[in-house]
């Protein structure tokens, strides 16, 4: 994968200490992307979250978690969405290159290319790509990073709808802003900028007051994922040439040996000293 400079990519800075869990971002996302509503119920999953998971109809959602603080029940939330990785695993594994990390930041999906193999869903460390399971010829669905809005100079729908928790701007500035907040209010935050290094760096950056694993963030390697397969795949041309060449050389040697043996036998047979194999039969 290209080692392009991602510092000027646009990135989301999501400060969960400022999130009230209003789910305005969820609604804005549905509206902008014209996504169908899902049937929901109270306590459909681990807590008050609705819908129970991201799906072909839901590209982002607020994930809830109950916890106890000073003997009081409290809510913890975080906004789940595509992380728009700097080096996306989905883009590296897709056989037809249906995913692309754009220069603006979003990882976009070219539906007209997709063959529907679902390797992106296996590869994504955040479990983001979802599938149209209801359809006969399904496609993948995921957060677009509102690429169509960004190109027109607008901000993503969720960031526009959010009152205070979602910031949007160049990635290096967002990281600087996040680190400033950590330095100024060390007691308010867990001292970590999630997304700065996760999966090789993402275009969605989180700050929270609770440990990330308690919030339900997945444990993710810090190494960019495409490297894991590329370390093996890069050997493909060499392996092909050495196996092909090696076997060719080997068979040339064995065939030559056989031919010489046959010729010698035929020669001897002609002289009549040793009957050839064929005459023996």
């Amino acid at each position: 994968m290209s080692k392009a400079d991602t510092s000027k990519n646009n990135a989301f800075l999501i400060d969960m200490t400022k999130c009230t869990g209003c789910r305005g971002c969820q609604v804005a996302c549905k509206q902008w992307n014209q996504l169908e509503a899902e049937e929901t119920e109270f306590f459909s999953g681990e807590g008050y979250q609705n819908p129970p998971a991201m799906s072909e109809y839901t590209f982002t959602r607020i994930k809830f978690r109950d916890y106890q603080k000073n003997g009081q029940n409290e809510f913890a939330f975080y906004k789940e969405m595509c992380m728009h990785c700097n080096e996306p695993a989905c883009a590296s594994v897709c056989p037809v290159g249906a995913f692309e990390k754009t220069a603006e930041g979003p990882v976009i999906y070219k539906a007209e290319r997709c063959i529907g193999c679902r390797f992106c869903m296996i590869a994504c460390p955040f479990g983001v790509p979802k599938y149209e399971w209801s359809k006969g010829l399904p496609l993948v669905k995921k957060c677009t990073g509102c690429y169509s809005r960004i190109k027109e100079g607008l901000q993503p729908a969720c960031a526009t709808a959010c009152a205070m928790a979602i910031g949007y701007g160049p990635r290096d500035e967002m990281i600087k802003l996040a680190e400033q907040r950590l330095a100024r209010y060390p007691d308010r935050y867990i001292n970590k900028v999630y997304g700065k290094e996760e999966a090789g760096g993402t275009s969605v950056i989180y700050l929270t007051s609770l440990p990330f694993d308690e919030l339900g963030f997945k444990a993710v390697t810090l190494r960019p994922l495409p490297g894991y397969t590329w370390q093996a795949l890069r050997l493909v041309p060499g392996v092909f040439l050495s196996v092909g060449g090696g076997l060719s050389a080997f068979s040339w040697i064995t065939h030559r040996r056989d031919r010489l043996k046959n010729e010698k036998q035929a020669e001897l047979a002609e002289q009549g000293s040793v009957p050839s194999k064929e005459e023996q039969e």
């Binding site: 590296s92 594994v93 897709c94 056989p95 290159g97 795949l233």
Partner: peptide
């Protein structure tokens, strides 16, 4: 499409 849109980074393509 696999033969048209090559992605040599993809094991599935290979």
């Amino acid at each position: 499409h696999v033969f048209r849109y090559w992605n040599v980074h993809s094991p599935m393509f290979e």
